[in-house]
Nucleic acid binder design. Sequence first.
DNA 1: CATGAATGAGTATTCATTCAT
DNA 2: CATGAATGAATACTCATTCAT
Lengths: 215, 215, 215, 215
Amino acid sequence: MNEYSFKSKTRRCAIKKRGRKKSPEKRRNITQAAITVFSRVGYHKARIKDIAKISGVAEGTIYIYFKNKEDLLISIFKEKTRETIEFFKSEVQKEATPLDKLKRLISLHLETFEKEKDLARLYQLELRQSVRLTKEYFKVEHKEYLDLMGEIIKEGKEQGVFRKDINESIVKRVIFGAVDEVITTWVVSSKEYDLTSVYEPLTDVLLKGLLNPEK
Amino acid sequence: MNEYSFKSKTRRCAIKKRGRKKSPEKRRNITQAAITVFSRVGYHKARIKDIAKISGVAEGTIYIYFKNKEDLLISIFKEKTRETIEFFKSEVQKEATPLDKLKRLISLHLETFEKEKDLARLYQLELRQSVRLTKEYFKVEHKEYLDLMGEIIKEGKEQGVFRKDINESIVKRVIFGAVDEVITTWVVSSKEYDLTSVYEPLTDVLLKGLLNPEK
Amino acid sequence: MNEYSFKSKTRRCAIKKRGRKKSPEKRRNITQAAITVFSRVGYHKARIKDIAKISGVAEGTIYIYFKNKEDLLISIFKEKTRETIEFFKSEVQKEATPLDKLKRLISLHLETFEKEKDLARLYQLELRQSVRLTKEYFKVEHKEYLDLMGEIIKEGKEQGVFRKDINESIVKRVIFGAVDEVITTWVVSSKEYDLTSVYEPLTDVLLKGLLNPEK
Amino acid sequence: MNEYSFKSKTRRCAIKKRGRKKSPEKRRNITQAAITVFSRVGYHKARIKDIAKISGVAEGTIYIYFKNKEDLLISIFKEKTRETIEFFKSEVQKEATPLDKLKRLISLHLETFEKEKDLARLYQLELRQSVRLTKEYFKVEHKEYLDLMGEIIKEGKEQGVFRKDINESIVKRVIFGAVDEVITTWVVSSKEYDLTSVYEPLTDVLLKGLLNPEK
DNA sequence: CATGAATGAGTATTCATTCAT
DNA sequence: CATGAATGAATACTCATTCAT
């Protein structure tokens, strides 16, 4: 594609790939290495040198793909969250009723984090390392998740499946908070048990509440 | 020979010990200054020098009262959480029914953090800065809070106020998670609104659930 | 002797000794503790706090008896060297001939350091930690030792026991250097063997030289 | 594909490796600056910042070439001693007789230190700053020097030039100690006189001893 | 005199980021 | 584009010395 590399008389040497454009593969390697390292030792103790070594690139190369260390962290969250939310949305849409949609969303949330343990650790423990990240995340990605849930609830209210007197804005937080806490417990507990096993009791109490209806 | 040393009721003249004594007031000053600085810029960017300046002591003095920076952070959490949980327990015991106890606990949680905004910020955002802290906190203090809630729920189940088929271990996390998320949202949102205003809708959904009972 | 301590209404409590003057015993304790600590970890890594603890006094007390840490080190050398040199002189004078005097001096040097191992360590390894100390020591105490040896040699030359064509100033250094090196080797070697056992071969070569007289 | 990489005689383009290379010159500059600074103010008071400034590199650069401050000191001794001993060995071998070899070795010792005054200061005064260094030095480099001397003496004994009843192990120390003491005196005395001027009287007494053979 | 809490100057080392090759 | 040597700001912590009691 780019013939320069062949004819060049300069020190420009053999290059595997055809061009000299940023390689998406290299970017992915870096991202994956960063997830591993950040998850293993935490953002602040993570060293760029280690991320470079694991991704198989030089330190400087990381700065070609990311502005700086914080940007690397933020990019991971942005990209992963975007992917995940898109996936959640598309899956949820396949369900017919608001109740099924809600259940599916909770279920997906649990399954996803169970599958990607390193990422789970990042979300539950490292997300708050950067003020900028925290603020942006809570205003954009996190909000989007909550909005998705809000819509489902709204729909449920309109259809009469959910109580009409509930406060959507609170309920979505209640549900997110419940799921989030359950995941954090799992992450901190060294992930010895099955995260999806909490799905049943979790949805049960969220849907039917704590009070005994017979009394 | 010298009877002073035997009759003395204070530690004065117990053979040795003259000179200055460690002052609990100084310790409190340092703790308070640390809460302020940690909350303002975050644990990692906080500088011992600033904490010293604000507490009105020399840098070295901090190391008389605390082993190191991490120990300072950890001590704050341990002490504050202990105080708070004791307070929660004593207040909750004043209530007659499990339902009132639960409501009171949630209410206290919200009120306490609303009153001490800096501390709230620490709990919601800085708690996870230290691996050691996170682990210990989740195993001790956090657990104790959950246990308190667990007992209330158990009592409620026995009295038939709460549903008998619920999973206590999950429910306590659901409630904690819900409250916690609501507080985090408040902290991140720059605390513009009244945290206690969420008490009503929050307890409502937790108690009665999401589903419309008529359907 | 001093009744103040009994009648005093102030915080002045029972005091073992009669007076409140600087106690020579306390001074000795500090000196001895310092020798131990300096010898064990070296001057620069030695901490006043440890010396205080071992001597059984408070940190501040050390500063009543010594100006500062360097002064403590220097005082030890001055005092110990003075004592030792006086002792050497008096012992040497008991000998009749220059040859016996010289032998006795070397013998004393070896014996003294063998007996006080901690002190030996200080002299062989720590003496050069302080520029001031090094300079003073080499100009005063070390010189005095060399002078004593110089006199003996001079006397020996005059009596014809020692060669008349030797250079006193060099010879005294040669002998000191030889003894000193032998002691250093012993100190560094963890003092596993008997220092006095080198006396015979050491004096033999110093007195008769290396060359084979038959050739 | 690209033949450069195969034909290149330098390490240029061997697949990877571009960018700056560690420069031996830079290492030398740091070493030389360290010798100067260590000699001027002593190891403990020497500041890395100053060594960096004098070598014309950044502070961090020093840590690319040396593990830490102590390693810098140790490396200097190891490298310089190695060089010097190799030089001594090769020079000594040029001499025919054991006597000439011994004289040459003493002469070289004096000349070398006279030429490199800063280094002399380091050897005579700073060598004992680090326990690790002292121990290693006395077990390796110092020993090697003594061994060289020991071999010469042994050879001399066998040839009958030196007395057969002398103790090699002591004699080598006597000679080293004598030379060493003479150098230390010179270093401490601010090096006002000519070190090589002591060569004659020094060897004279070492070879012929102190006693008057006529008596 | 004695105490030990308080002080604060002093610095080796790390590591994100840059830049010559 | 890629490299990794070079940079240098930034800071927790120590410990000799002081001083209030």
